[in-house]
Design a protein around this nucleic acid. Structure first.
Length: 510
DNA sequence: CGACCGTGTCATCCA
DNA sequence: CATGGATGACACGGT
């Protein structure tokens, strides 16, 4: 929607300032932040101040929202707000307008020497010809790098720059969205809330044509905070519009430019203003209400984690790095039965495993479940029930909690099952080897025994002939081996038996 | 690009 | 009846 065909210009300091601003506005610009680094720090400071102002604004908005939500049932509340990611509900209003405000304000400040937006875009286009290639490149702007931005709850991702999120792998984001939206209750709530909770505040701002569409509402928040348009997956009925409007018609790079059209902006809005918009995390913190979760202070959180952070979450979820530890049996609450030790998992899959876990965390956050997934899964049933009884959860939340517990238990069971299966296989292989060795040994014995038997037979034959040759009849003549044979009875007595007789008997029997 | 593997999840059975 | 362990089957993503 924004034109980038402008006369070429030199990158003066002012130009760079504008670029810097634009960069913030257009999270999907694709340009590396370092490119404009000369003013990076300075801007950060500015943005910080504006963020505070924006916070107030958002808090008020949040209060209104929560009022509406409470009036409806918590169920609606959940969906409508978080939409896909943290602070979704409020995001739209704040994120959309700011860019323009800031833009206007800054341009004004820069006065005639300042580049117009189009000029900046042109400059950017020239600077970053390969937008598509950059598109997938992680934003250079490091959240941790920005001084004041950091410090917020790691899980909330307040200071998380939108750019990273926007450039998150489309597949990943889409999956996350699909999962989140796969929750029937959530889908329902999304549709409902979008209409009655978010719309009011949204209407207050003059948004782009697309933004005026209720279904389009989420776009800014969604994209700014979580994913590029292509990945956007809205609630049922919303998807189509969203995808059609954004995914299909608007390149990710230009996505943010749409927000620039938001006309109604607080005149006093400063650079920090839109910065906040792109740092939905702050909003999340507020959305969390009076008792925001304690932050672990870790600003160097994986993008995935940040994206997964829900708007409201009374109880902080352990950092990924500590999550595994927390999964091992603890006596934290009752000291009673706890799951067996974590099933064995190869390191190379650890990361993935954790990310999977965070999926349920995502869901839990989406529905504002006031417990950590770990608690839900690992608490003994009594403690679990007690915990549940202390919180007023709606049907959707209860269902989700049950599912999370079930899935968590089953996941462990499956892992143990597979571990046992592997152990069984190993055991059987070991047994097989033993049996093979036994077989070889028996074969050797059999061979040896056969050899021994043949030798004994040979010796017996020799001995027989020797004994037989020593026998003499009444006339002193030796017996013929063909006519007589020696036979031994059971009592050990040896008799000389005529073979002829034997033969005759045989013949008689025949 | 298909085979293979590890993992999560679901369905089901059972204690 | 609720809960949860065990396990086959399937889906999915990574290698």
């Amino acid at each position: 929607m924004m034109e980038i065909e402008l006369p070429k210009m030199h990158q003066s300091q002012q130009d760079m300032d504008l670029i810097d601003i634009l960069w913030r506005q257009d999270i999907d610009l694709g340009a590396g932040r370092e490119v404009f680094d000369y003013s990076h720090r300075q801007k950060e400071h500015e943005l910080q101040r504006q963020r505070e102002l924006e916070e107030e604004k958002r808090q008020q908005l949040l209060r209104e929202q929560e009022k509406a939500v409470l009036a409806q049932l918590q169920l609606d509340e959940e969906t409508g707000e978080f939409v896909p990611r943290p602070a979704a509900g409020v995001q739209p209003q704040t994120s959309t307008p700011p860019p323009e405000v800031t833009q206007d304000g800054l341009f004004t400040e820069e006065d005639g020497n300042a580049l117009s937006f189009d000029e900046c875009m042109q400059l950017l286009a020239e600077t970053f010809p390969l937008v598509e290639a950059i598109e997938t490149t992680p934003p250079p702007l490091d959240p941790a790098a920005s001084p004041p931005a950091g410090g917020g709850p790691a899980m909330m991702a307040p200071q998380q720059p939108p750019l990273p999120a926007a450039e998150k792998s489309p597949q990943e984001l889409e999956q996350a969205w699909m999962e989140l939206l796969s929750i029937p209750e959530l889908q329902q709530c999304l549709n409902m809330q979008m209409a009655d909770v978010l719309e009011p505040s949204f209407g207050a701002t003059t948004a782009p044509t697309e933004l005026q569409d209720p279904n389009y509402f989420y776009m800014p928040t969604f994209t700014d905070m979580v994913a590029p348009p292509a990945d956007a997956v809205g609630p049922t009925g919303y998807l189509g519009t969203f995808e059609g409007t954004i995914s299909n018609s608007i390149p990710p790079d230009n996505l943010n430019q749409m927000s620039l059209k938001a006309s109604e902006i607080n005149p006093s809005f400063s650079a920090d203003g839109f910065c906040d918009m792109f740092y939905p995390g702050d909003m999340n913190t507020k959305v969390d209400g009076p008792a925001p979760p304690a932050s672990n202070g870790n600003t160097d959180i994986p993008l995935a984690e940040l994206q997964n952070t829900p708007p409201l979450k009374p109880i902080d979820i352990p950092d990924p790095t500590t999550r595994r530890e927390s999964q091992t049996p603890k006596d934290g609450i009752s000291g009673r039965r706890w799951p067996r030790q974590a099933p064995f998992t190869k390191d190379k899959h650890k990361k993935r495993s954790e990310s999977r876990l965070s999926r349920d965390e995502q869901r839990a956050k989406a529905l504002r479940i006031p417990f950590t997934v770990e608690m839900i899964i690992n608490l003994p049933v009594d403690d679990f029930n007690e915990m549940m009884s202390k919180q007023q959860l709606n049907e959707a939340q209860l269902a989700l909690v049950r599912d999370i517990r079930r899935r968590g238990k089953n996941k462990v069971a499956a892992q143990n099952c597979r571990k046992r299966k592997m152990e069984n296989i190993v055991g059987l292989e070991y047994e097989l080897d033993s049996l093979k060795e036994e077989r070889e040994r028996l074969l050797r014995e059999h061979t040896e025994t056969g050899t021994s038997l043949r030798q004994m037979k040979q010796q017996l034959s020799t001995l027989y002939l020797e004994v037989f040759s020593l026998l003499r009849d009444e006339e002193g003549k030796p017996y013929s081996p063909s006519e007589y044979s020696l036979q031994q009875t059971s009592d050990g007595s040896v008799f000389l038996v005529p073979r002829v007789k034997k033969t005759l008997i045989k013949n008689d029997s025949n």
